[in-house]
């Protein structure tokens, strides 16, 4: 990769981080920072799911497994092992990588709906394990006693502002890494597999290896989403590993736009806004969400950002065509 490209991307990421860090002064109060923290958790999770769906053509119905795994692994490491936050962060990613390798090795050999339902089956297995293993996980009550947040490198995550900045940093860093992942030769091989796996095999590529690596990377970042949420709520609950989390992830991807990298981020913002606003007005959130999803399925199949992106691209092409016609 050219040094200038990396520097440009780093500068962009630093710029976004700088803007995020001053926003709490523009929007004071906990409501805004809490929203951004929750959005960070879901955006990292949904973007990781989009690596599978949008770039790999692997529609996982069980990606919430890694969200729950991340939340429980991190919380338990902090509670029971008393590790530092950076160490627990790293170990959580390693645990997720290990679990994703095991589950992925089985799932990625299946195609389409079979892959989808096998991932769902593994998620429900983990959810059942969390419910059943009460001495460790707290069962259906979730972990009790809170997640310790000892300071590290001068960062105190029990301070809401520090937690906000930390979550913003993890969000930007995760998106940065995943963006470079999809822009790498590996990312394009993944797109080729999404389009035509058989043809990829006839290019001399072992398709399952690429799929497995994508599954592992997606699993790692899916767990980072859960980790952020466990930091925010200072606990972990079985719902984090329930199938509805996977469903919400899929909705975020669809609402934002499958074919656009930042689509899931937009989807996370929209879904959380919708949730916060609608639940304040009516108890029938599910009904409203259903109508919204229906609208997207019928009229905005490319998602919000996907539709805008296509409109911009078509307009630019039309402009280029007109310019060429003048010569």
């Amino acid at each position: 990769m050219r040094r200038s490209t990396v520097l440009r991307d780093v500068a962009f990421a630093v710029g976004v981080l700088a803007i995020l860090s001053v926003l709490p002064f523009v929007f004071p109060g906990r409501h805004f920072s809490d929203f951004v923290i929750r959005m960070s958790a879901f955006a990292v999770f949904a973007t990781s799911l989009n690596l599978l769906i949008g770039y790999g053509g692997m529609v996982s119905f069980g990606h919430g497994l890694f969200y729950g795994l991340g939340a429980y692994s991190f919380a338990l490491l902090m509670q029971k092992a008393g590790t530092s936050i950076p160490m627990a962060f790293l170990l959580t990613m390693l645990i997720s990588a290990g679990v994703a390798t095991l589950i992925g090795a089985i799932c990625i050999r299946l195609k389409e709906i079979y892959f989808s339902f096998l991932t769902l089956a593994f998620q429900m297995l983990v959810h059942s394990l969390i419910i059943a293993w009460t001495p460790l996980t707290g069962g259906d009550q979730g972990l009790t006693g809170g997640v310790p947040r000892p300071p590290f490198l001068g960062i105190r995550l029990d301070d809401p502002h520090h937690l906000y900045l930390f979550c913003c940093f993890v969000l930007v860093a995760s998106l940065f890494v995943m963006y470079h992942f999809v822009q790498s030769p590996f990312g394009y091989t993944l797109r080729m597999i999404r389009d035509n796996p058989r043809r990829v095999g006839f290019l001399g590529i072992q398709v399952w290896r690429i799929r497995l690596l994508a599954f592992v990377v997606a699993g790692i970042f899916g767990s980072v989403g859960g980790l952020l949420m466990s930091l925010f709520v200072s606990s972990a609950y079985p719902d984090f590993a329930y199938w509805t989390i996977s469903g919400e992830g899929v909705f975020m991807v669809l609402m934002g736009g499958i074919g656009v990298f930042l689509g899931p981020l937009v989807g996370a913002v929209v879904l959380l806004l919708l949730s916060d606003i609608v639940t304040g007005l009516t108890e029938y959130f599910g009904l409203v969400l259903g109508v919204v999803i229906l609208c997207f399925a019928l009229g905005l199949r490319k998602g919000l950002l996907g539709t805008l992106w296509e409109a911009w691209r078509d307009r630019r092409r039309a402009g280029a065509g007109l310019a060429a016609g003048k010569h």
């Binding site: 992942f181 822009q183 790498s184 030769p185 590996f186 990312g187 091989t189 001399g204 590529i205 690596l213």
Partner: peptide, 14 residues
Amino acid sequence: NAHRGWHARLGRRF
């Protein structure tokens, strides 16, 4: 990339 064995590179941009 597939022919040259570069198809799984992560640290470079396509």
